[in-house]
Structures are given as C-alpha cells and as structure tokens.
C-alpha cells in the first residue's frame, strides 16, 4: 500500500514538474558574465613581483649573521689592513671644519625622524597593498 502511494506521489510530482517552466536570464547576461570574467584576468605586466625575492633576502641575512659571528673572533688589525683603503680622512676633515655645526639634540632628532620615516614607509606600503588587493577582488 505504501509503495503504491509512493509511486502515485512520484507520478504526481512528474506531472507537476512538467508544467514548471525553465526560467530565462536577462538579455545581456552573457555579456555581463564575460566582462567580469575577462576583467578578473590578471595581466603579467601589472602583476607585482618584488625586486629582491624572499630567498635572496634569507641568503643575505644568513651571510650577515655569519659575518657578525665570524669576523670579531677571526680578524686582527694585521689582516684587516685593506679596510684603510680607500682613505676617507679628507672627507672627515672637511666635515670637521664645516660651517654647519649641529647640536646633539638636532642630530638625535634627525636620526629619530629618519627611523620613523622608514617605519612609516613600511606601514604605508602594507596599506596600499591591501587596497590594491581589495580593488582586484572587487573587479
């Protein structure tokens, strides 16, 4: 009996769904899809690639740390004679006799401002990268 009703239900649904129509999209649907799809393609020309890759940075850091550890222990004034070339003493003398003399406070301020500028550059770069990503996702 239950199977009979199940069969009737299936037949009923078949009959009803025959009358249900397939919906149609708007006339310009395909062109809208293609516009979005093609806009999402990223051009290789505009693709951002860093000048120095992460692996190169890592290599430079390792060399720097190795030098920092190795050099103080394994160098003597005799085998570091090449550091005296080129001779910068004329420049130092010129700087010492310069008309411009800065106070300690000014020097510290200039150094601090430069450091803060570098920090700001990093923050701004991150901010604009995020904006660029958001624009690309919206497109």
């Amino acid at each position: 009996m239950k199977m009979e009703i199940d069969r009737q239900l299936e037949g009923f649904a078949d009959h009803i769904m025959e009358a249900a129509a397939l919906e149609s999209t708007s006339v310009d649907f395909t062109s809208k899809v293609m516009l979005q799809a093609l806009a999402s393609q990223k051009s290789d020309v505009t693709l951002y690639k860093p000048l120095i890759s992460n692996s190169v940075f890592a290599g430079v850091l390792v060399c720097f740390i190795a030098a920092f550890i190795y050099l103080p222990e394994n160098t003597t004034p005799q085998n570091m004679y090449w550091l005296s070339y080129p001779d910068f003493s004329p420049i130092y003398d010129l700087a010492a006799s310069s008309v411009f003399k800065f106070s300690e406070m000014t020097t510290y301020t200039i150094v601090f401002a430069t450091l803060v500028l570098f920090v700001q550059i990093c923050i701004l770069k991150k901010h604009f990268d995020n904006q660029f990503e958001k624009c690309n996702m919206q497109a």
């Binding site: 919906e23 149609s24 999209t25 649907f29 899809v33 293609m34």
Partner: peptide, 13 residues
C-alpha cells in the same frame, strides 16, 4: 567561454 555560458545559463539561473 561565452558558448558554455549560453548553453547552461537558463538552467543554472
């Protein structure tokens, strides 16, 4: 890709 869109757009919609 527009050909595929046209083929399936009505049913997908």
């Amino acid at each position: 890709f527009a050909v595929l869109v046209d083929r399936y757009k009505n049913l997908v919609f």
